[in-house]
Amino acid sequence: MEASRPGAEPPWRHTWPKPPPGGYTADDLDRLPGLPPHTELIDGSLVFRSPQTVFHTRTLRLLEHSLLRAAPEDMEVLREMTIVLDDRQRPEPDVMVARADADTGLDQTAYRSHDVLLAVEVVSEDSRARDRETKPLKYAKAGIPHFWRVESDNGRPVVYVYERDPATGAYVATGIHHNRLKLSVPFTIDIDLTGTARP
């Protein structure tokens, strides 16, 4: 493989999407060709995801399967689908719970924030600031009532649970769960968080 000359432009430079004045819109994610999987839109800018860790994959699988078993029929558990919060915000939580009647068909690529009950973010090295600060503020502002942030504690998931205060429009921490996640909202949930560990 030929090395790039110092100061030379990388080969992808001329094919990389050039943002329009004012940034991209939520609808642009469905129209831009060749975007990497799981591209998000934050403040009109495209955000690309790095390869995920084994911790992220196992935790995501545990939460998704547990929520699928617990969710009532009028709710749907979705993995890695985007949410349109407004014209310049279209993040992709790792897992979300939405109203089942918000399903518009097999070609649907996003849900509207008013149809989402829970957004879950499993924190990665490259997403720490977004998952701890940026996304919770935007999810709360858009009216999503429940948010979970999941972090690794020596390879074990710890779930930080938040509920939106309708009076302030901000999330309030309601618990930190280490070995077991037992909640009554948005529906009855009881998850053994030690299930990601190998025997």
Rank of each mutant, 00 (worst) to 15 (best):
R31T: 15
V158I: 09
L41D: 07
D153F: 12
I42Y: 07
V161M: 10
R13L: 09
T39R: 02
M75G: 00
P145H: 15
I176F: 12
R149H: 09
T168N: 15
L29R: 01
K141W: 11
M96Q: 05
H146R: 08
T134Q: 10
L78R: 03
L32C: 07
I83G: 01
V122C: 05
E76H: 07
G143T: 11
Y171H: 14
V158G: 02
D43W: 06
D28V: 00
G175N: 14
L68V: 08
D107P: 03
L193F: 13
T39I: 01
G169P: 10
T59G: 08
K141A: 15
K18C: 11
L63Y: 04
R88Q: 14
V123G: 08
D115A: 14
I189V: 15
G195W: 07
A129T: 14
T39A: 06
I189R: 08
P145R: 12
P51M: 00
W12I: 01
A98H: 07
Q89D: 06
T109D: 06
I176D: 15
D94Q: 05
R90G: 00
K135E: 13
K135F: 02
R88F: 08
V47R: 03
R49D: 03
F147M: 07
V54R: 14
D190C: 15
M1F: 03
A26P: 00
D87I: 01
I83W: 05
V120K: 00
A70I: 05
T196N: 13
P136N: 07
E40I: 01
T104C: 13
E121N: 10
E133I: 11
R99S: 14
G105W: 13
P186I: 04
D126P: 02
S45M: 08
E163Q: 14
D190G: 10
R156E: 11
D153S: 12
I176T: 15
L67N: 05
R13Q: 09
F187S: 09
L78S: 01
P21V: 05
D74N: 13
R61G: 08
P33S: 11
H38K: 06
T196V: 14
L60M: 07
V95K: 02
D103V: 12
E163L: 11
D165H: 11
R79M: 02
E92C: 01
T53A: 03
A102T: 12
L137C: 09
V95A: 03
D87G: 04
G22Q: 07
F55N: 10
R180F: 15
E125G: 10
L67S: 02
E9R: 11
S152H: 14
L67A: 02
L60H: 02
A70W: 04
D101N: 14
V54K: 11
D131S: 04
L35R: 01
D30P: 02
V77Y: 00
V161D: 12
R99F: 07
T59E: 05
R130Q: 10
A100G: 09
R198N: 14
L35G: 08
Y111C: 02
R164N: 13
H178C: 15
N179G: 15
V122R: 02
P37Y: 04
R130C: 06
A140C: 14
D126G: 13
S152K: 08
D107A: 13
Y139Q: 06
M81C: 04
A129C: 05
L62E: 06
R69Y: 10
V77H: 00
H178I: 15
G22K: 04
Y171P: 05
P11A: 01
